[in-house]
Each structure stands twice: as structure tokens, then as C-alpha cells.
Amino acid sequence: MLTSEERAEIEAEAGHYPTRKALCIEALEVVQRHRGWVSDDALRDVAALLGMTPDELDGVATFYNLVFRKPVGRHVALFCDSVSCWIMGANRLREHLCQRLGVAPGGTTSDGRFTLLPVVCLGACDHAPAMMVDGDLHLDLDPAVDPAKVDAILERYP
């Protein structure tokens, strides 16, 4: 069941589009904002609300990189794996994060605190390597330059 809050947030966008279906990406975002991810049940509820079949909605949901169809941790750390960051040390950043968090990209820490995922260029290529945690952009993160910096950032997300 969608909560009345979720439903209200979805319907708030309804006036922007001539069809119900066009709401679906924002509806998935609303659900994800409240629950962290989109479960099969939530997917069915959103589909019913918008007059879509669950399969049709899942086809859309699985197309997009930022719709999570599996549970994620309390915080999601997106490290940029695109070219400018790669040149500037994105692999070192990835290895540092994997080692500190004890997970591989795609994984969630056993205490449920972090999910670590690669992301496409964050538009911060002049401050590479870059990472985004829960929507906050963090810049200039080469562990070879400042190994403590990344650790200090992670500390801010208990």
C-alpha cells in the first residue's frame, strides 16, 4: 500500500502531464525517497495508481540507473567512474572505498549503512575524482593526495 503521503506527492505532479503514465518516473522517485528502494509490492501499487501493468512499469524502472529495485543501505555512495575521474584516480578512490566499507561496487555493508555504486560523470570533472553521497557532491577525492579526506566524508553519514 502506498501511504497517503506518497500518494499526495505523486498526485502533486499529475497536473504537469496529459497522461497518468508520464508520472511514473517521478512516482518511482517518490516511493524510493520514502523507502530507499522500490519493492515488487510498491511497484505493483504504483502501476495500479497510474493505470499501467506492473510489467510495463518494471520495464521502465529497470531502464534507469537510479531506480533501485533492490534494497540499499541508509546511505548511497555514488563514485564517478567516467573518464576524467578515471584519469585523475577514480580507481584509487574506488579501491579505497571498497576497502574502507568492506564491499564491492554494487554491495551494501553488512550493517546496512552504505551501498556503494558507480555513477556516470557527475559534471564535476574539473574537481576529479568526484563522489556523491545522498545527493551531496564531494570533490577532489584522490586518496593518493589526501587519504584522510574520504574517510572524514564517510564519517558524516552514520
Partner: peptide, 8 residues
């Protein structure tokens, strides 16, 4: 949408 790698 600016997702082209290297574009900021």
C-alpha cells in the same frame, strides 16, 4: 541532462 562524460 548533461551526462556526457567530461562535460560540466
Amino acid at each position: 541532462d548533461e551526462m556526457e562524460p567530461g562535460s560540466f
